[in-house]
């Protein structure tokens, strides 16, 4: 249909998924901000400022998560079938925390609601901490593997009664979970410093939090890098046989000097730069370095996971059940049709950026909150 062969389309769709996943990492500033709500806001007004700043964006983060799942469903349905039905409890946990998030923005300030605003703020904290941690741990299992067996008729058997929750016993998965939570808090601080028009008090605390949370990211980042060098990864041969390869993910980083190692290093440098500018100057523009930095880092993370003949969802239970972009993808026809439809994506992105500019045209100030001027008051 488009002149691409099957493998090229599989690679294109892995790159698309990597980009969407990386954009979700950027947008996780909403979840990060929700945990900062509990730790940096001291007065009712400060809380309402943060909630209103995040309340304008949370749906975009949620939509990206759905898009990430949707793209996986369409492009690599065997992964979707395996992970969502097999690792059932992890995904249910994640989804439940996102249900809590949705109702919290809706009902926090509704008059006469059953639960008080403190309960909804607590729900937002659960989504920002537990929800994001579980997503990080789930991404970790894409490196360390899940306990599944796939039959010839695509029936999934999960080899552990915890149905995915056993992933929380693997240190690498925990490290990815903590990394995602603390990175989201860094991004959340940078975003809020940029989006709130107030100076002093809250914003100073947020500048401090950006730096402290970056320090908290470091040990987990170092551990992950160390494990990428030392851990055994899952590759596959020309005829699709899954093989174990020591240091596979680090080799992938080196094998893709620009989008692998290059994006990772550039991304990390940009994040550090954004935080340092925010912490040690009066600039509010840190998110413009930190945000793209998070996207570059995320793209590198996903690319080394699926490209260069790597199994992106290995099975610890039955090695040959491991999923690769070649054995888990949709047919040539489906991928071609999807690629045609995806040509409309730039228009959607243009619309999103237009709406974003409208929402950000005025910074949120305490006066807006006190006068309830904003028509979308949360």
């Amino acid at each position: 249909m488009l002149g691409f062969d099957h493998l090229q389309l599989q690679q294109i769709w892995w790159i698309v998924i990597s980009l969407v996943g990386a954009l979700f990492i950027l947008m996780s500033f909403v979840q990060g901000g929700q945990t900062l709500l509990a730790t940096t806001a001291r007065t009712e007004l400060e809380k309402t400022l943060i909630v209103n700043s995040l309340g304008r964006k949370w749906e975009l983060t949620y939509t990206l998560l759905v898009l990430f799942g949707g793209a996986f469903f369409a492009a690599f349905p065997r992964f979707y079938a395996t992970s969502f039905s097999g690792a059932y409890w992890v995904w249910m946990l994640i989804l439940m925390t996102f249900v809590l998030q949705a109702i919290s923005y809706e009902f926090r300030k509704k008059p006469g609601n059953l639960l008080g605003s403190r309960t909804y703020e607590w729900f937002l904290f659960i989504n920002g901490s537990l929800g994001l941690f579980a997503i990080g741990a789930a991404v970790g299992t894409l490196f360390t593997g899940g306990n599944f067996h796939i039959s010839e008729t695509n029936l999934i058997t999960w080899g552990n009664p915890a149905r995915g929750l056993e992933a929380l016993l693997v240190p690498f998965n925990l490290a990815v979970g903590f990394l995602v939570v603390f990175l989201a808090r860094v991004l959340g601080s940078l975003y809020l410093v940029n989006n709130l028009s107030e100076e002093g008090g809250l914003v100073d605390r947020l500048r401090n939090a950006a730096f402290n949370n970056l320090l908290a990211v470091l040990p987990f980042l170092l551990f992950i890098l160390y494990r990428w060098i030392t851990m055994t990864g899952y590759g596959y041969t020309e005829n699709g046989e899954i093989i174990l390869e020591k240091g596979k993910y680090f080799q992938n980083l080196l094998a893709m000097p620009v989008p692998g190692l290059g994006f990772l290093l550039a991304g990390l440098v940009l994040i550090v730069l954004g935080v340092i500018v925010t912490r040690f100057t009066r600039s509010t523009k840190g998110i413009w370095a930190g945000g793209p930095g998070a996207v570059l880092t995320g793209v590198a993370l996903f690319l080394i996971l699926g490209l260069n003949k790597t199994a992106f969802y290995p099975s610890r239970f039955d090695l040959q059940s491991s999923l690769t972009i070649e054995n888990a993808s949709s047919s040539l026809y489906t991928l071609s049709a999807m690629t045609l439809v995806a040509l409309a994506v730039p228009f959607i992105l243009a619309y999103v950026s237009y709406v974003w500019r409208l929402m950000n045209s005025e910074k949120i100030s305490a006066r807006d909150i006190e006068n309830k001027k904003s028509h979308d008051f949360y």
């Binding site: 730790t39 940096t40 904290f125 901490s129 939090a209 949370n213």
Partner: peptide, 30 residues
Amino acid sequence: MALVWLIIWFALLILSLKGAEYLLKKIDEL
């Protein structure tokens, strides 16, 4: 018995989330 385990599980979950909130507050205020 399952109900008891569920209650224990929830209690532990809430306790660890409260602990996490406390630790994060400490980190932010350092």
